[in-house]
Amino acid sequence: MPPRSMRAALIETPGSPAVAGERPEPARGEGEVLVAVSAAPIVPLDRLCASGTSYFGVPSTPYVPGVQGVGLVLEGSADLPKGTPVWFATNAGMQPGDGSMRSVAAVPEHDVVALANGADPVLVAALGLSAVAAWMALTFRGGLTAGERVLVLGAGGVVGQAAVQLARSAGAGRIVAAARGERSRERALALGADVAVPLGDTASDDVADVTELADRMRVDGPVDLVVDPLFGAAAAAALRVLRPHGRLVNLGSSAGETAPIDSSTLRSRSVAVLGYTNNELTPAQRAEALAHVVAQVRAGRLTTAHEAVPLVDVTGVWDRGGDRIVLIP
């Protein structure tokens, strides 16, 4: 008997938006968990892989995109019985195989994390690994301690929004949010930042522009820790705002792959520039971080701007900027 078909988003041509279509419903393989997908976010990595321009190479098409999702176990194991709410990861676009943007997904058990009951699956999907990155950049890599001052760059993005809230719940003494748009700065203040400053031209490497940006960031005085998903001029300016022995944790380069950092700033303050990626996390670390994210969601202390969209409408929202899009199969 042939497998049943299911709803799915499909990348048919690298560089073109995903389209709504159908895919055979997968069977559970050895070591896999079958998940009924409740929500699948569209994240930058999905678009990058689907573009065919990433360092992973051009993906084989057609394939179902989606590197993460949230759902309920249909067929699992003793540790993941039927009905368990879960978050899961896939290698869609990076390796052959289908991702999360479909009604049912077959996922290796080591890429599935059980979630506590009671959290909104759409919100958890919207936050996902972005919130994990924010939390681990603050704590695991950044060593945040209660009372320290934190500067969050790119506070309008999902990572930045999460970093503002998670820094507050972790006991940060003062939080400065830096964001380009006025709406993003207002949102950062509503989420718990003490002050919000405009970023300006983050693509400039002019010394005068970097100095002006640093002066804006220093509105509240020096800071102990910078969360930086931008790099570029914003990172160079933020380094000038650090206290002696302060730390900047870089977890992205949306403003530029290089930054005009001067040696005198590094040496005069003995500051540390630290890199972070979710890829270095062990499954246990990732599960623990996700558990913290979900606990904060359930407590009403963590959210992000997002929009739930039916999967059938994927083409129209594939390239949309702004609030995170979460597809509902």
Rank of each mutant, 00 (worst) to 15 (best):
S268A: 15
G83R: 11
A272E: 10
V241L: 09
A133F: 03
A308K: 00
S169Q: 14
I325Q: 09
Q165K: 13
G71W: 02
P260T: 09
L281V: 12
A162Q: 06
A208D: 13
K82M: 14
G83N: 09
G154I: 08
A179D: 05
L191C: 04
S77E: 02
G256F: 14
A236L: 01
P229H: 10
P121G: 02
R23T: 14
V271R: 08
A188L: 05
E12N: 14
M101S: 05
Y276H: 00
R102V: 09
T202C: 06
L213W: 02
P3F: 12
G157Q: 10
G29W: 00
P44A: 02
T202R: 12
S254H: 12
K82D: 10
A20W: 08
A134G: 11
S5I: 08
S204C: 03
S51K: 11
A305M: 13
L266F: 01
V43K: 05
R298Y: 00
L189P: 01
A50N: 13
A289P: 11
P310H: 02
A8S: 12
G321E: 11
S204P: 06
T258M: 10
A237F: 03
E186P: 00
R168K: 15
A50D: 09
A203S: 15
G171V: 02
L302R: 09
L199H: 04
N279V: 03
T304L: 04
R243I: 03
G275D: 01
V35S: 02
Y63T: 00
L266E: 03
S169I: 10
L115E: 04
I325M: 13
A208G: 11
W87S: 14
E257C: 11
L10N: 12
A188S: 06
L80N: 04
L213P: 05
S5M: 12
S16Q: 15
E109L: 11
A134Q: 07
P2C: 06
Q68A: 07
V223T: 09
L129T: 15
E288N: 10
D79T: 13
V294A: 00
E30Q: 14
A308R: 00
A125H: 12
G128F: 01
T303E: 02
A208N: 08
